[in-house]
């Protein structure tokens, strides 16, 4: 059997794949956080809850309406995005003139409320969601066995990340968003409806989180706690990457996911904390984060 650093190649590649999958979710979620923070100056603590809502939306739509995975992949983000837009319009938008810490506290309360409600309704144990038949099974790549669904997740999340990056960097809407990030008053003076832009941004961010949630449903168990488990790690990812750049958030997400996967091979005890350790080291060496401009 081929060995790499004294570890069987199969185990190595297997963990690398898991790392890549986790990295896909970190990238999608930190991307959404960065988009929201860029314009709203709010750290969306409810991002994890919105991710969980996406997974639940997929599961409930299948249970009650027989809506398949493919439609859920589109409908889930839309439903959660609308919910996010509603929250932004009615409540979050009242906090923009205050210290940004209030936005964090508000979304923290929102996350607790959503999570508590789902725990009350569905219990805290996870529920399975079947892999869609078209993506079931796996292929043997010769050097390892690849479950098709996992490959799909990596590809789709990469597409979603690049798509969002293109939307923000290359389209008219994106240029409005970037302009409003720099100077909202001036952009409003040019006749752009900035409040609507803010609502739209929060909706898109929440939708992205829900999209990640639907993708995650067949891999992890659908559970009310899935969001709060991941959001703290994503915060560390965001600190490492710095929220200055969208690309930075994406790249850091994948990098840290892989780092976590590899730690599982070499020193499993530390795999839970490796991302936090990396965060601490980056802060000591480069306080602004790897891609950050703001200190």
């Amino acid at each position: 059997m081929t060995m790499i650093f004294g570890i069987p190649l199969q185990a190595f590649l297997g963990q690398l794949l898991i790392g890549l999958i986790n990295g896909s979710f970190y990238a999608l979620l930190s991307l959404g956080l960065a988009v929201i923070f860029g314009l709203l100056r709010v750290i969306n603590f409810a991002h994890g809850a919105q991710y969980m809502l996406g997974a639940f939306a997929a599961m409930l739509m299948l249970q009650y309406f027989g809506i398949s995975y493919w439609f859920a992949l589109i409908l889930g983000p839309i439903v959660v995005g609308l919910f996010g837009a509603f929250i932004e319009r009615t409540m979050l938008s009242r906090l923009y003139n205050l210290d940004p810490l209030y936005g964090l506290l508000f979304t923290f309360g929102l996350a607790l409320t959503i999570e508590g409600t789902f725990r009350y309704l569905y219990g805290s144990s996870g529920q399975p969601y079947a892999v869609p038949t078209q993506l079931a099974g796996g292929t043997n790549l010769g050097f390892m066995f690849l479950p098709i669904y996992r490959g799909w997740v990596v590809v789709v999340s990469l597409v979603a990340c690049i798509g969002t990056w293109l939307l923000i960097e290359k389209t008219k809407l994106g240029s409005y968003l970037r302009a409003a990030t720099e100077n909202p008053v001036l952009v409003q003076a040019f006749g752009v409806n900035v409040p609507v832009l803010l609502t739209l941004t929060y909706g898109i961010g929440a939708g992205l989180a829900a999209f990640a949630g639907v993708l995650a449903a067949p891999i992890y168990q659908v559970s009310p706690l899935m969001g709060s488990n991941i959001i703290i790690v994503v915060f560390a990812v965001v600190v490492v990457g710095g929220m200055g750049s969208i690309m930075g958030a994406i790249v850091t997400g994948y990098m840290l996911g892989i780092a976590e996967g590899l730690t599982k091979v070499f020193y499993p005890e530390a795999s839970n904390i490796v991302i936090f350790v990396i965060m601490a080291i980056v802060l000591l060496l480069r306080p602004a984060g790897l891609f950050g401009r703001d200190a």
Binding site: F37, I43, P100, L101, L104, I232, V233, F235, A236, V238, V239, N272, I273, I275, F276, V277, M279, A280, L283, L284, P287, A295
Partner: peptide
Amino acid sequence: VAIRRQGIYFAMITLALSQMFFFF
């Protein structure tokens, strides 16, 4: 570690470090 960043980053860093202590 945490005072190297301000405001909202400070909050996130302390949260992450305390989660690390939780796993410890």
